[in-house]
Nucleic acid binder design. Structure first.
Lengths: 98, 98
DNA sequence: GTAACAGTTCGATTCAAGTCGTACAATCGG
DNA sequence: CCGATTGTACGACTTGAATCGAACTGTTAC
């Protein structure tokens, strides 16, 4: 199936990344993922409903900020740090170090 | 009077910067200011009304992205590149080159 | 002084984004 | 197979940001 893994490295735009990061919950997701290698969805945003969380995964995925790996019924999220650092050096660090 | 020049370097937050940059017009302002030293307000956004433009200056100013210098009745805007580069290295470059 | 100009502020409107609930698809466990 | 669980898709509601017009302040020019 569609490894719907978002844009290729070269197609990541700064506009989409900025829009994706301009939200407190998504910012928390990125910071959490920067600290851990991988995380399942519900580990990160326990306070919102599934549909809301899913919406935020989608925004982050389509912006090229995260990628996902499916294992059974669980979904593991990972920060696309190499791609982001290669395309927009310093941006992830700025967000993580805050 | 009120040199209402926005936050001091150390008080600039990445959240406010991201929010300020997450808008097509403000992004254009930053890119234009990065290319030129200074610009008057209307040089940058001729297509919107004064009140709309003023709103965007305010967002950029309060986020610490730009500073302004008054000369008579004209307002000159300048990108706070040193402050931003010092606090969040790479972010301005990502936006400008992006 | 007065008229013109630059920018801010306020209120009202419009519109996109976030949120949730429900229904659905897919997977695992019995 | 059947029920429980994980995540998605869709529609509806709500909230906040963007936009504009009008009124106001301050400055320049005559």
């Amino acid at each position: 199936m569609e490894n719907d893994e978002g844009p290729a490295r070269g197609d990541i735009t700064i506009e989409a990344v900025l829009a994706a990061l301009d939200h407190p919950l998504r910012l928390r997701v990125v910071r959490a993922l920067a600290a851990t290698r991988e995380m399942t969805c519900q580990e990160i945003l326990p306070e919102v409903t599934k549909s809301t969380a899913s919406h935020h995964w989608k925004v982050l995925r389509e912006a090229g900020v995260v990628e996902q790996r499916r294992e059974g019924r669980y979904l593991y999220l990972r920060l696309r740090r190499d791609d982001l650092d290669s395309r927009f050096p310093g941006v992830v660090d700025a967000v993580v170090l805050g």
